[in-house]
């Protein structure tokens, strides 16, 4: 019962050019990419090859210079900043290499931050707290809810950041080197968390340098000089995939 896959991400000849004239840098040079619902994709490639640029565009944080980006059937390439913000709020969760938690907020407050900017189905104060607490619990940090970021280890901070990315129940989670600042033990924890999420149906796109991490993904994209160099599937995840897509996007 291999599910008929629904494309979440579809890009057509995505081009991103920074600067102009002499200083012009072609960071993305015609990327055609399709990612289906429920996939776990790792993006690899040498430094400066355009991985972050691609991920930022996929995360609606940046806009392509040319080409099309269709997110869940919606062509967002020409969207204005406010519209992109709305898409980010409704459909996307982003995990940064450097966690990017707000230092003056507790773990709990950091996690519920995205709820404040939600435009529809707004929750009350207590509902927000309850939800944030539930998500924190799902990443195993319920007991650290009232700690501040500087009272948490790197791995814990990144788990808070993942909880934050999850709280709006997004279609897609994008992570730019989520384990880049962590040691191997913490990295392993984070990757297990992501695998777990994926196995419950969450679509994940992750940029990484480490083959060890990429090994966990079902599909690995290689980017070189802004072009898609290779696109291979890690076969050993087949069983979990069928199981996951059956479950859909429940959380």
């Amino acid at each position: 019962m291999m599910s008929e896959s629904v494309p979440i991400i579809q890009t057509v000849q995505l081009v991103k050019i920074y600067g102009s004239g002499e200083n012009q840098v072609v960071a993305l040079d015609g990327i055609d990419l399709t990612i289906d619902s429920g996939e776990f994709v790792a993006i690899m490639g040498p430094s400066g090859s355009g991985k972050s640029t691609l991920l930022n565009i996929l995360a609606c944080l940046d806009r392509p210079t040319r080409g099309q980006y269709i997110l869940a059937g919606e062509d967002v390439s020409g969207y204005k900043r406010a519209q992109l913000a709305e898409i980010r709020s409704r459909q996307l969760g982003f995990v940064f290499q450097s966690y990017n938690l707000l230092p003056r907020l507790t773990a709990l407050e950091n996690v519920l931050l995205p709820l404040l900017y939600r435009r529809e189905e707004r929750l009350s104060h207590t509902e927000r707290k309850e939800k944030a607490l539930a998500v924190l619990e799902s990443v195993g940090l319920a007991d650290r809810a009232h700690h501040y970021p500087n009272q948490l280890s790197g791995g814990q901070q990144q788990r808070v950041a993942i909880a934050r990315a999850l709280i709006n129940d997004p279609l897609l989670i994008l992570a730019d080197e989520p384990t880049g600042n962590l040691d191997s033990h913490a990295s392993e924890e984070i990757i297990q968390l992501l695998i777990n999420l994926n196995s419950r149906g969450r679509t994940i796109v992750m940029v990484t340098h480490e083959p060890d991490m990429a090994r966990h993904a079902r599909r690995v994209l290689m980017i070189r000089d802004g072009k898609l160099a290779s696109d291979r599937k890690n076969g050993h995840h087949r069983e979990t995939q069928s199981l996951a897509s059956g479950e859909g996007r429940s959380s």
Binding site: A85, L102, L113, R164
Partner: peptide, 16 residues
């Protein structure tokens, strides 16, 4: 600035 960027990343619109 970073805080502003982060808030935007998690869904804050320019108006927010």
């Amino acid at each position: 600035t970073r805080e502003i960027g982060l808030r935007q990343a998690v869904g804050a619109a320019p108006a927010d």
